[in-house]
Amino acid sequence: MELLCRELEAIRRALPDRNLLADERVLRNLLSIEERYQPPGSYFKCVQKDIQPFMRRMVATWMLEVCEEQKCEEEVFPLAVNYLDRFLAVVPTRKCHLQLLGAVCMFLASKLKETIPLTAEKLCIYTDNSIKSQELLEWELVVLGRLKWNLAAVTPHDFIEHILRKLPLPKDKLLLVRKHAQTFIALCATDFNFAVYPPSMVATGSVGAAVCGLQLDEGVSALSGDRLTQLLAKVTNIDVDCLKACQEQIESVLVSSLQQERLQQPTDPTKAPDDLDQASTPTDVRDVSL
């Protein structure tokens, strides 16, 4: 009989490095290099023949569910989607290989970011065993080659701490704002429209949406509507109107995602409350009131 130990050691994380977070040069460098890691534009028209926007959403949603269930670090999912988009922007891919590609991207992102990465075996099970571990490993090399082994991409997560520390947030709300912002970022990664925005804009818009959603402006006037947008725009050096538009788009993605979920619910009345937590919309966002 084979035994499998499911006991996991507690993940050890480094403490936030104040030298990195307080130094303006770090933020400046992030802003100057972020565009290197963006897909050059929509690949549905010119590169892909078989793959359509809704399929990208399907695979991204599945990837988010896997990452959530496996309790991956927050950066893993957006990073994996970044790999997926950059690969699809240059390699025409068959529809039936798209899920394998999504699994490979999670495999790579998880290895880069996590202490205990996802295993190939587990990822194959998540595809309902439609792919083999060996194929995953072979395609890992293909994806790496196409990304030129350039995996340390800038994601919206890299900006969160830099933005948060510039806002006059009440200390007791900081955790909540961060969590909501991270969830908005995950939501954005499921939607291709945000893939062509700079990560700093997605991050800034997500923090804006999180602060607005929590209605923190009641206590602090600097956090109200336009003043917040202006403050945020200054931090990451974004045009105020662009930022406003981006934040509105983020909020509307949340609304449509919630509507979709409501539509899906009645079709499956047997769903246990437990299952709901693994639905395509991250749980936390549902607490946000707009």
């Binding site: 499911r6 290989h97 798209l98 595809t127 299952d275 693994q278």
Partner: peptide
């Protein structure tokens, strides 16, 4: 260790 709901084949046979 994984939930059935997430285990799915999205685009048919490979």
């Amino acid at each position: 260790t994984v939930s059935e709901k997430v285990c799915r084949n999205l685009f048919g046979a490979v």
